[in-house]
Nucleic acid binder design. Structure first.
Lengths: 125, 125
DNA sequence: CTAAAACCTGACGTTGACGTGAGAGGCAAG
DNA sequence: CTTGCCTCTCACGTCAACGTCAGGTTTTAG
């Protein structure tokens, strides 16, 4: 599978895939002419990388943690890094939940306002 | 209250506060010499701004949504924006939760590995 | 064989929320 | 008065994950 096909299957850009390789997150066999070829497993790997990026991890963190996320083994130091990231994600979830709750409150209140007071700020409608 | 005190009370940098003002998220009275002065309520406002930034909203989004978050009134268009942001946050929470779950799985497995197989990859240890 | 599509390697551009000086003025204390 | 800290306004620097363009090679479709 060449880079365009991998991009199509994963939904990430060709540029991004080359960037992942540059960051040592993804490897490829090269054909004699220099074109990248990937095994089928690369799809899962790219999706995993995307998941970790989406969780706010940096390339560097992903590079460190990917091996043990893939094969489930880790040194005590890696376990520490894993826990640190986990806690960071946990905190971020907390931030997002409270922001979402605040928006929900506003949405509920404003919706009620719109129904009672006909339009914008016109409680006598 | 001057800018340094507001920074100290909210935990955000002086530079960030000036940036918020530049983005019209925060206003200040100016003394004759040009120095910024803030009322006590500015503390809450800055914390609210921080909460929304932490939820991944841009300055522009915060600028649009801050008024109705503060006073609970919104036009239908604003309600739409609010819902859009809410859904985005919701999706992001989903991403974070699945990433956290994956890390939890790895942490559990790797911890078990460490206990069974004595150190790193030495099951006979 | 030829044209189009896909691929390659640089290398510079983008975006947002600030960080970081530079250089100058303001303000309470001794 | 002056020492020292706080504040002011530019204005350039940063960082990460790519986007995008240039200029050239390779593969594929007809």
């Amino acid at each position: 599978m060449r880079i365009g096909a991998l991009a199509a299957r994963t939904g990430v850009s060709v540029r991004a895939l080359r960037y992942y390789e540059e960051q040592d997150l993804l490897t490829s066999r090269r054909s004699p002419s220099g074109q990248r070829h990937y095994p089928d497993g690369a799809v899962d790997r790219v999706e995993l990388i995307q998941e970790l990026y989406a969780a706010g991890l940096s390339s560097r963190s992903i590079l460190e943690l990917l091996p043990c996320v893939v094969d489930g083994e880790a040194t005590p130091e890696l376990l520490d890094r894993l826990s640190t990231e986990r806690d960071r994600i946990d905190g971020q979830i907390g931030d997002l939940v409270s922001a979402r709750d605040r928006l929900d409150t506003v949405i509920t209140a404003a919706t009620a306002n719109l129904r009672t007071g006909r339009h914008c700020k016109n409680p006598e409608g």
